[in-house]
Amino acid sequence: MLRSMITASNTLGQLQQQLDLIGNNMANIDTQGYKRTQTGFSDLLHQQMNNGDPHDSPDGRSTPLGVRSGTGAVLTAHTAFSQGGIKTTGRELDFALTKPGQFLQVEAGGEIQYTRDGALYLNPAQDGRLQLVTSEGHAVLDANQNPIFLDASFKNSTVSAGGRLTANPSGETVQLGIVGITQQTMLEKQGGNRYALKEIAPNGTVAFLEPEQVGIKQGALEMSNVDLSKEMTDLMIAQRSYQLNSKSITMGDQMLGLINSVR
């Protein structure tokens, strides 16, 4: 009974984490550029409990006598970077990345990070110019990883499919810092819809793209890739699994109570 209760309690903790991740996905269904977290389970180590001599096994049996007892399950989670739907907004400073694996470079916390959220804004800079920033105020970087500043006379802008921004009426142009991430498993979430490279990321993980390689659409935003019907299905399965393991602990506790009550 103790073994079954320990196994169930191990799994309950992992199921709770899955429920939290599913809830986070559902909460961000309308967050532009959000990438859902995909969850799954794998078995923890099994323990072999022999109850006989393997040499006495009947003919045809390929495994030794005994029982392989599991110790629970462990949650595996990774970010699914599939392309989200494109929503037309008509706003000049909204940009949707139309090719998967491409990210806009921003500066946050003194380091270069990456985002798929293309809702950009202009903030007044100390020198009288305007700085291109994200919705949270983080600096957007150009192809040379420098902050982007525009003339104070800015009225409107146009962006080519290759990511070249032209400000009117000054006519100044700048190439948005859009890069390709070759190994997206090397990205970890930082909050605020941003990602940073893991310290173990190998050289060459970030690929600097030529304009003809970039896919961008002005006046639109990439929405999240969360599928509500799938999240609801995963939520119900996780809840039933949670109930099953909870019931296993309850039954084990009741049987231990019966054993202890025997005189």
Rank of each mutant, 00 (worst) to 15 (best):
R3W: 12
M5Y: 04
Q14V: 02
Q17L: 11
G23K: 06
N24M: 07
M26E: 04
A27K: 10
N28W: 08
N28C: 10
R36L: 10
F41I: 07
L44P: 05
P54G: 08
G60H: 13
R61P: 00
P64D: 06
L65D: 10
V67W: 04
S69C: 02
T79E: 07
S82K: 04
Q83T: 09
G85A: 14
I86H: 06
D94N: 11
A96W: 01
F103L: 05
L104E: 05
V106M: 03
G109D: 08
Y114C: 03
R116T: 11
G118K: 07
N123F: 09
D127N: 15
R129P: 00
S135M: 10
H138E: 09
H138L: 04
Q145H: 13
P147M: 05
F154E: 04
N156S: 15
T158I: 04
V159D: 07
V159F: 10
A161K: 11
G162F: 01
L165G: 01
A167T: 06
T173N: 07
V174Y: 01
Q184S: 12
T185G: 15
K189N: 14
Q190Y: 01
G192D: 11
N193Q: 13
N193H: 08
A196I: 09
L197P: 01
K198T: 13
V206H: 01
L209A: 10
P211S: 13
Q213V: 12
G215E: 11
G215R: 09
Q218C: 10
Q218Y: 09
V226I: 12
M236C: 01
Y242V: 05
Q243N: 07
Q243C: 02
S246H: 05
M251R: 06
Q254C: 05
